[in-house]
Simulated scan of single mutants.
Amino acid sequence: MRRNFTDTVSRSVADPTVYATAARALLKALESHPRTRLIVIGGAGSLEIEPGLVRADSDELLHESLDRVGLPREYAAAVRGHRDALNVLRTSNRLWTYFSPAEEIAPGRRTGRFRIGGDQPVLDAAGRSRISSEDAAVALIDEAELPRFVQRRFTIGY
């Protein structure tokens, strides 16, 4: 299992420009399909931890976060790649939605009870940004079926 994780991290950081490149290519493809909606699943590193302060913009804050969730520090390149892709989407007039799940996302229980936010993380009573993969999937399907965040990002947490 550890080898698969190491391989995934290596592939994620091999070329961090690929995230923004993919966003531009998808938006270009949507030019001929202006009514088609794009939903992108990104990361929590581009969320504002306070107004104007994005974790992905600070080595110290990003490394602290990666350490806390058990990811190697080189994964910062992928986090910044996702942030860059979001910034590409924000310049577009296409029908896009960017989903930033909580900072801590792992298999767990589907509760159907979570809170939705915009550009700031949703924190639980202990100050943690967390969600189960099952509830993240529910939120994603809910957004696909009933769009509320067109040309915007949203996040979730307990």
Rank of each mutant, 00 (worst) to 15 (best):
R128H: 12
T17P: 05
A22L: 12
E74L: 12
R130C: 05
R130W: 08
E104P: 12
A139F: 03
A78T: 13
R110Q: 15
R90T: 00
S65K: 02
E60S: 10
P34C: 13
L30G: 02
E64Q: 09
V122L: 06
D15S: 07
T17Y: 11
A85N: 15
V13M: 03
V79D: 05
Y19M: 11
R73Y: 12
G81V: 12
S129W: 01
I41R: 02
L86C: 09
F154K: 01
D59A: 05
R24H: 11
A56T: 02
E104H: 14
Q120Y: 07
L86H: 06
R83V: 13
I105P: 11
G157V: 01
H33G: 03
N93Y: 08
R148C: 05
V88C: 07
R2Y: 10
S100P: 12
S32A: 15
S100Q: 09
T21F: 10
F154Q: 08
G42K: 04
A29I: 05
V54G: 02
R109A: 15
I39Q: 09
L53G: 06
R37L: 00
D142M: 07
F154P: 06
G117R: 07
S133C: 09
P107I: 15
L140H: 00
G70N: 14
R35P: 00
Q120K: 04
D124S: 01
V122F: 03
A106P: 04
D119E: 11
L146H: 14
G127Q: 08
H33W: 09
R128L: 07
A25M: 06
A144M: 14
I131K: 00
V13P: 02
A85Y: 08
G43H: 02
D84M: 13
E134Q: 10
N87I: 00
S129R: 00
S32Y: 04
L89I: 04
R110D: 15
R128A: 02
L86K: 10
S100R: 14
R80V: 13
Q151V: 05
F99V: 03
L27T: 09
A44I: 00
L27P: 09
E104Y: 15
A22T: 14
P121A: 09
N87L: 12
Q151I: 01
